[in-house]
Computed example of a mutant assay.
Amino acid sequence: MDDPRLLLLSERDNVLVACRRIEEGETVVIGGRPHVLEKTVELGHKLARCPIGAGEKVVKYGVPIGSATRAIEPGEHVHIHNLKSDYTKTHVIAKAAS
C-alpha cells in the first residue's frame, strides 16, 4: 500500500502526487517499501512510483506528460530537474554548455 500523503491518479501512472508538503528526511511508503526523501516535496509535486528509465515517458492522469532526462528511482522527486515536458520546451532545466 502507498503512503496516504500520496495520490495515485490512474493505475497507469508511474508517478504519485503529494497531497501535502512532505519534508526532507521524512519517510514515504511506495509499493510497500520505505523511501527517505532527499528534499522537501511540495503539495502537488510528483514522486516516482517505480523506476523510470532515462528517456522513458512519465505518465500522470494515465497519459504521458514528458520524458525522463535521466534514470529516476522510486520515491524520487519528479520535476523539471529530471523531466522534460513533451508539450512546452521551457519546462526543463538545461545543463550549461561545458
Rank of each mutant, 00 (worst) to 15 (best):
D2H: 14
D2Q: 08
D3Y: 06
D3H: 01
D3W: 08
L7R: 13
L8V: 09
L9W: 03
R12D: 12
D13Q: 08
V15C: 10
V15L: 04
L16E: 05
L16G: 11
V17T: 12
R20W: 05
I22N: 03
I22C: 09
E23V: 05
E23N: 12
E26L: 00
T27Y: 04
T27R: 14
I30W: 04
I30K: 04
G31H: 01
R33Y: 02
P34V: 05
H35N: 00
L37V: 04
T40Q: 13
T40P: 02
V41G: 03
E42K: 09
L43T: 09
H45D: 04
H45W: 09
A48W: 09
C50Q: 15
C50R: 15
C50Y: 04
P51C: 06
P51F: 07
G53F: 03
A54Y: 00
V58W: 02
V59G: 13
Y61G: 00
Y61E: 02
V63Q: 12
P64G: 10
P64Q: 09
I65N: 07
I65E: 06
G66N: 05
A68W: 10
A68C: 07
A68V: 03
R70E: 14
R70P: 00
A71M: 08
I72P: 13
P74K: 03
G75K: 10
G75E: 02
E76D: 09
H77N: 01
H77A: 08
V78D: 01
I80V: 15
N82T: 07
N82M: 12
K84T: 10
S85K: 06
S85M: 07
S85C: 06
D86P: 01
D86F: 01
Y87L: 11
T88H: 12
T88N: 14
T88I: 15
T88F: 13
K89Y: 13
H91C: 08
V92S: 10
V92L: 14
V92N: 09
I93Q: 13
A94P: 00
A94T: 11
A96P: 00
A97Q: 11
